[in-house]
Amino acid sequence: MARTEIKIGGFGGQGVILSGYIIGRAASIYDNKFATMIQAFGPEARGSACSAQVIVAEDPIAYPYITSPTQMVLMSQEAFSRFSPELAEGGLLITEEDLVTVRNLRPGIRHLSIPATRIAEELGKRMVLNIVMMGFYGAVAGVTSKEALRKAVEVSVPKGTEALNLSAFEKGWTFAGR
């Protein structure tokens, strides 16, 4: 059973939950797979390290929580310190280049980073950094199709911001192909 466990981490306001939502929506609505998203509730969702977990699978998902994440998208140093030790052997780690200094990474982890905040600022809106991350994630993670992820971005972002977010998505995707 192909089951991918993904953890997105960052701080409140970075669009961590929305990122998890976009991956899950892409997989379950547009790629016809199964997806379960669980978001962190409680004090951690209100200011400090914030996280969302998504499971994507070919078959119905029984156990709803992630146990050994194989992919992580981390957008803050605190999220890196707190969550990266949980990453499974041979897992994929994606970090925001300027916000996360990667130290003491275990061998065997595939690590990629992207200056998503700078790219977002070049587009004129720092807030879309999570969508830049999603474009990059989509291109390297291979969990959802590009069309599905792009569509999920388009329908999940606030009305009126679709064009900006889609260009952020494309920038992230293209960055992966450099």
């Binding site: 899950g24 379950s28 609505i29 997806a35 669980i38």
Partner: peptide, 10 residues
């Protein structure tokens, strides 16, 4: 329960 209530799926 909280798990089902806060779980997002299709």
């Amino acid at each position: 329960d909280e798990c089902v209530g806060h779980m997002t799926e299709r």
